[in-house]
């Protein structure tokens, strides 16, 4: 496993939204998908996954439905709602701004001051 990074506070919801926005997923699937799309760099603490899923569902950002998994078991699948998609877009944009700002701040050399 490659080097893994700690999750920044507040980013878990964003990652979950992103994961289920690609394709409906069950809880375990969300875990695997985040691992996959982050190149296994991000470790989601399993204990905080479900509270986060329930919170997002409660806020109406994702929706849940019971379905059948690949190995024919009953599983709860989460999909993103239009409100969730909107929120994801906003959060992505503000994240980009943050990253750009911090990157430019950190890249500053003494001559530039």
């Amino acid at each position: 496993m490659s080097q893994s990074a700690d999750l920044l506070p507040g980013t878990l919801d964003m990652l979950i939204s992103k994961a289920v926005s690609l394709k409906p997923l069950h809880g375990y699937g969300v875990l695997l998908r985040i691992g996959q799309i982050s190149g296994h760099a991000l470790q989601i603490p399993q204990g905080s996954l479900y509270p986060a899923l329930y919170r997002l569902e409660h806020q109406g950002l994702i929706a849940a439905e019971w379905g059948e998994s690949d190995n024919k078991r009953r599983a709860k699948y989460y999909t993103i709602t239009s409100a969730g998609r909107q929120r994801l877009k906003e959060e992505t944009a503000s994240w980009q701004r943050l990253v750009t700002a911090i990157a430019s701040a950190l890249a500053t050399t003494p001559d530039e001051v």
Binding site: H26, G27, Y50, S69, R73, R74, K76
Partner: peptide, 15 residues
């Protein structure tokens, strides 16, 4: 439903 979901998660990981 909550119990089912968590059991599914553990089982899937175990698989």
């Amino acid at each position: 439903a909550m119990s089912d979901e968590i059991r599914f998660h553990i089982d899937a990981y175990a698989d």
